[in-house]
Simulated scan of single mutants.
Amino acid sequence: MAQQAETARTERPQATAAPRKRQARGERRMAELLRAAGEVFAQSGYSAATTNAIAARAGVSPGTLYQYFPNKDAIADAVAEQYTTELRAVMDSVLGSAPQGMPLPELLDVIIDPLVAFHIAHPACIVLFVGPDSPQHLTELHLPLHAAMLERIGALLAVLAPQLPAERLQRSAEVAVHMFKGVMPLVLASAPQDRPAYVAELKLTFEGYFGLLLDLP
C-alpha cells in the first residue's frame, strides 16, 4: 500500500506536465499565427489577405490555422485586440506626463520614437484600424484608444501652451494624430536604411507645427 501511494505521488506531477507543455505549444503557435497574420495584412491589405496566405507565412497547414481561428475575421479581431492592448501601453508610457522644461526637439524624440518603433513592429496597425478596406467593427474597436490619444495630446499641449483655449488645443491634437497616421505608411514603406531620414522629416514637421502653436498668444 505504501509503495502504491509513493508511486501515485511521483506520477501525479508527470500527469500534469503534458497538458502544460501542450498549452505552452498552443500559446507559441497562437503568437506565430498572429505575427504572420499581421505581416500578411500589412503586405496585402485586409480584403486581399487570405487564411491560406497567413498559414503559409506561419509555416503551418490551413487545417492547423483553423484549429485556432474559424476564419479571417477572427484572426483580424485577435490581431487588432493585441495591437490595441500593446499600443495603449506605449501611449500611456510616452504621453503619461509632460517632462517639465524639456526642449521641443527632445520631447518629440521621447514621444515619436517609441510610437514609430511600435508601428514598425506591428506593421498591420494602420491597415486594420484606418485602412480603406478595414471592417467597420475594427475601426470602432480603435475609437476608444483614438479618443484617449487625443485627450493625452491635448493635455500635453495644455501644459506646453497654457495660453491657448481648450477648443484650439483639441483641434491641434486632432491634427497631430492625423499627421502621424498620414505619414506612418510612408515610413513603413521605406527601406529600413531610409527610415531614420523619414522619421526625422516627421519630427521636423511636428517641430514646425508645435513650435508655431506654442508661440501663439
Rank of each mutant, 00 (worst) to 15 (best):
A2W: 03
Q3P: 00
Q3I: 10
Q4F: 11
E6T: 12
T10R: 15
Q14G: 02
A15H: 11
A15D: 07
Q23E: 09
E27P: 00
M30R: 15
E32R: 00
L34K: 06
R35M: 12
A36M: 01
V40D: 00
F41K: 11
Q43F: 03
G45D: 09
S47V: 15
A48G: 04
T51N: 13
I54G: 08
A55Y: 05
A58G: 03
A58T: 05
G59W: 15
G59T: 15
V60Y: 11
S61Y: 07
T64D: 01
Y66W: 11
Y66T: 12
A74E: 15
I75L: 12
Q82F: 10
Y83R: 08
L87V: 12
R88T: 09
A89H: 10
S93W: 08
G96V: 05
S97K: 08
A98S: 12
A98G: 05
A98P: 02
M102E: 15
E106N: 07
L107Y: 05
I112D: 08
I112V: 12
P114Y: 06
A117E: 13
H119D: 14
I120P: 00
A121P: 00
P123A: 06
A124W: 02
C125Y: 08
I126V: 12
V127N: 02
F129K: 06
F129M: 07
V130C: 04
G131L: 13
S134M: 08
P135C: 08
Q136H: 05
E140N: 04
E140Y: 13
E140L: 15
H142R: 05
P144S: 01
P144E: 01
H146M: 10
M149S: 11
E151P: 02
E151F: 02
I153H: 01
G154R: 01
L157N: 05
A161N: 04
L164P: 01
A166G: 10
E174G: 00
E174A: 14
V175S: 06
A176W: 07
V183T: 00
M184G: 09
S190H: 04
S190T: 14
P192G: 14
P192N: 14
R195P: 03
Y198M: 00
V199W: 09
E201G: 02
L202D: 05
K203S: 14
K203Q: 12
F206T: 03
E207S: 07
G208P: 11
L213K: 11
L214D: 10
L214Q: 13
L216Y: 04
